[in-house]
Design a protein around this nucleic acid. Structure first.
Lengths: 201, 201
DNA sequence: GAAGTAAGCTACAGTCGTGTATCTAATTGC
DNA sequence: GCAATTAGATACACGACTGTAGCTTACTTC
């Protein structure tokens, strides 16, 4: 991977990002409930002592890792292609969901136990940063430009795309294909804002 | 609770349902990943030995509990009230979701670890039994009677209601109110089948 | 009532994770 | 180069859960 000449001991930044990667990996395999200092240390090939010097329990390590994860990419609505921009927004969501941080967030959000401590830290970092949902950025853009009546852009409507993707992930465990995304846009989102697609097929 | 005269020892049916209730409760509090024979036994106020006589690990106890849980109530579309029937179907879903078994299923489906072993047993019992989703029963009923074009009833459309409820539960942790359900029906489901609500308000 | 069944208890050795304390040696900064 | 850091390796006592074994005693059945 990165250059690690003859050195045998990682320090500072290098060590920490290895640990961050390790927690995220670990949470995927064992879930939030079974995160242990031991497991993280072993996966990061470091000593438990090193972890305790910086954090006091596995959840802290996890939160820290998420805090330092790459931020969520934002959809940038283009010229005049509502349908295309919606699909791209959903693609962004799928892409993020499949990133280590996204998968970890999913594992956390759905953990019965990990409510208080983690979720708060999460919402502050991951969600507050982003304006809201992926599609709503796009929808707001086009509503402001009069492509459809702004009063149709309710919270429910803003959630449709993300909700359907989430459900598909839960049901099948597999990410939706681009065809699936197009179907979601054509059959659920566009109708909700009063735009029936011309002829789906 | 039930009549337990002077008896000090539960047996058979009575004992087993106490254990079933205990696993379901336990899985809510600690998650699937942290289910232990010990925890279940303590909560059911029985001895670990008693559990081992019947099951060999906590997951087996859980699967058995779900298998014996009350089946999912089915929506029964009525005379001529698509909107009302949809709302009732969603109410049924919410109701089931909040039942001990429903909450346990949610905990399982979303657990990174509990995929293989549990999910299979689950789908066979919980989902295969029911025809499919809650709203699709209703939608199919009205599509067959020509209330809207049957080709609009795609898999995506059939999922809209359930998806939005699931997302709301994940996001807020609280069940949607009847007003929320009505909004879902009016703003997402009905438009998708080509029926814009006359004037919601 | 007597006999069979099964629940409830206690005990045990084994494994795994926890925090803490020590010691060592690699890396960095001057 | 030398001193200050700090990663990495043990080691430890503690507690939780495991699976099994052996025993007592409450319930059921005939």
């Amino acid at each position: 991977m990165s250059e690690r000449d003859g050195r045998t001991r990682r320090r500072g930044e290098e060590l920490i990002s290895a640990i961050h990667a390790a927690v995220l990996q670990e949470v995927l395999e064992v879930g939030v409930g079974r995160l242990t200092m031991d497991g993280i240390a072993k996966r990061a090939a470091t000593a438990r002592t090193t972890l305790y010097r910086r954090w006091s329990d596995p959840i802290e390590v996890l939160v820290d890792a998420l805090y330092h994860a790459h931020p969520v990419e934002e959809p940038t609505p283009g010229a005049d292609d509502l349908r295309g921009d919606l699909i791209r927004a959903l693609q962004l969501m799928v892409k993020w969901t499949l990133s280590p941080a996204g998968l970890a967030v999913a594992a956390i959000l759905t953990d019965p136990k990990g409510s208080a401590k983690v979720s708060d830290a999460l919402f502050e970092k991951v969600f507050a940063n982003r304006g809201g949902t992926f599609t709503s950025t796009v929808l707001r853009h086009y509503a402001e430009r009069g492509h459809f009546p702004a009063e149709l852009l309710t919270p429910v409507v803003a959630d449709i795309g993300e909700a359907l993707i989430t459900k598909r992930l839960l049901d099948t465990g597999k990410p939706p294909t681009d065809t699936d995304l197009a179907a979601i846009v054509d059959q659920a989102i566009l109708p909700a804002i009063g735009l029936m697609p011309a002829k789906p097929e």
